[in-house]
Design a protein around this nucleic acid. Structure first.
Lengths: 354, 354
DNA sequence: GATCCAGTCTGAATCGATACAGAGAGGTGC
DNA sequence: GCACCTCTCTGTATCGATTCAGACTGGATC
């Protein structure tokens, strides 16, 4: 049907190898012949070597996979994920590499299959909740990968780019504690695989499902432990998804009790903005004021006046892709910790006297 | 090195075909044998059929390409493009298909090569400026595609999803004309391939480079022609890129003359926001006020109070992907025009009396 | 005039799987 | 007892290229 390399070779009267060389190794044949071959190819409507066949023979594809938590279409609604992708795409561009976005079906068997079937040379794994299974598949395929969330059994030779989640979380929590807050709620997405929205009880931070969540909650707890507030005294609230709506739904009713929290520490800016939405909607208005903090410092955080922790999102993506695309010789250089910064804005203030 | 299908076959003592069937056609062999094969595979660390080899033999890849104007990393900074991608990803997800984002190198020869080498089953072409060459390559490869910008020689059988650019542009321009504006500037990105930033002169709309720009400018011109303002009386301003910064730079000095425009019609919301930025920065402030309109109705437009034309961005992506992934039997159903709506906000008002 | 070499081109082997026709075994129906 | 089926499994051809060792040519070198 469509012409193949062989068809072009026959038309010109040369061997298949020579036509292949005309495309892939121009120095291996005379310019005249090369022109003749390319002309014939144009005549025949030959679109150049079939990428799949070429990949098979060459042993590499020329594209990297990007793996996302949950639904791929959600990732595009998450400003932090988008900035991460921006970083990845910049690096990919520079390397002339394509990016394959692989949607993961809900069932894990299917999801494994999706990772097994992705035609890529390696993966950037963006925080797949409970990502171990994905890393297992990738390792089994013998493909390189860079992870962005520290998982618990990371080997010394695993490439990684991230932040010190715990220390970063601690810094913002210490700021809130320093303002005098003692009745505090912690809000996170998918604390446990099947927890409902709203307050949940965990015997300790280690029970949290997602490694990133574990790190951040631990940091929050650290800061409050230091001022004498134990884990049991903190209210942990679960959101069904990392969205403003989910956050607003999760904290509905949280402030209606007799001793409501005076501050909410959210695991992401998106969640924090949802808390602000919920507070703004409240019949009582925002009085007494509730301090709210986020995490990430997405663009919207600035205009909302949200106190948060800044982490370099695009940088994270860029470095992830670069660690993948040209790995440092030194294994230690493959584990990158990025700086974070506490950004204090109007959403936090002293505890109101009651 | 890594085990192949053959290795598993040898280990179990069956034929290669049978192992293949164990993965791809479970109904072709007994459950017992299948289990035995999958176990052996696990033992050997065989990660399942090589995706590239499988694609070669099967004749399809299981992923669709998305082609973007200009740099891929810019696309991620464009809110409209992101919403488009969101739509595409939703559809891809539902079909179990991956998305390949292909960065296009600046040189056209290289860009052609990139499109030729993409291992995909089809393309969603998002408004590649001067996209004909890309469509040529795709057609030569015999791959299906869906375009989002109407190009001039679209055949009746070409799949397409878009809006009536001209009518949509006309509606917002008519609104501005109705407010009495007669000294008007039109702002667009990349009006000509090599035009500098700032005012440019075109003998007519048809000279504009980008088909989408042509459509929108034509609509603007239509509305003003109707109130007696000819093309030559409109100021056309070129921006070097679709960004707030580029727009702000493009209109620098535009309002300093003796008879400055009282309205600026921008070809996109991002450009319009840039104009608002520039106006806000002006020493004179926003007095007299300048009416500004955008195009697309991205989320930021609402908070900026920008008058604009809404087009369903996510829908556009979703439909593009769906036209590609399961094409309608009826060719006419492959050409979709989406509705648009004029959204009037605070950024437009009557001409100030001078 | 023999030797060597760089520049071109060829042929066979190979990448890792899937498709398809068909072989063999075991069971059914009459 | 024979024809006929169904269920499993096998073998060979094939997808469309790249690789690499070597063959050939014509000219430069000594």
């Amino acid at each position: 049907m469509k012409p193949t390399l062989q068809a072009v070779a026959d038309a010109v009267g040369v061997s298949r190898s020579t036509v292949s060389n005309a495309y892939s190794r121009p120095d291996q044949l005379s310019t005249a012949l090369r022109e003749r071959i390319l002309d014939a190819a144009r005549q025949l409507g030959y679109p150049g070597p079939n990428p799949t066949a070429r990949s098979l023979r060459r042993g590499f594809v020329g594209s990297i996979g990007v793996l996302f938590t949950s639904q791929l279409s959600y990732a595009f609604t998450d400003p932090f994920a988008i900035r991460f992708l921006t970083g990845v795409s910049g690096a990919a561009e520079r390397h002339g590499t394509s990016m394959l976005l692989v949607p993961l079906p809900p069932a894990q068997t299917d999801a494994r299959r999706a990772v097994e079937n992705a035609a890529v040379d390696g993966f950037c794994v963006y925080c797949v909740a409970d990502e171990e299974w994905a890393l297992d598949v990738i390792r089994a395929r013998g493909l390189p990968y860079v992870s962005t969330a520290s998982h618990d059994d990371a080997g010394a030779d695993e490439r990684f780019v991230g932040i010190d989640e715990r220390a970063a979380a601690r810094s913002v929590a210490a700021h809130v504690a320093g303002l005098g807050h003692r009745r505090v709620a912690l809000l996170a997405d998918a604390v446990l695989p099947d927890a409902p929205a709203g307050p949940v009880t965990l015997s300790g931070v280690h029970e949290a499902w997602h490694p990133t969540t574990r790190g951040r909650l631990a940091g929050f707890a650290d800061a409050f432990a230091e001022v004498g507030v134990g884990w049991a005294e903190l209210t942990l609230v679960n959101a069904l998804g990392n969205s403003r709506q989910a956050a607003a739904a999760a904290v509905a009713g949280l402030f209606d009790g007799p001793a409501p929290p005076t501050a909410v520490l959210a695991g992401s800016d998106v969640l924090a903005l949802g808390v602000l939405d919920a507070l703004a909607q409240r019949p009582g208005g925002t009085n007494p004021p509730v301090s709210v903090t986020g995490f990430d410092d997405i663009p919207e955080a600035a205009s909302a006046g949200l106190t948060t922790v800044r982490q370099p999102a695009e940088e994270k993506g860029r470095i992830a892709a670069e660690l993948l695309l040209d790995p440092p010789a030194d294994a230690a250089a493959g584990q990158v910790l990025l700086p974070t910064a506490l950004v204090v804005r109007a959403s936090t203030g002293p505890v109101p006297r009651s």
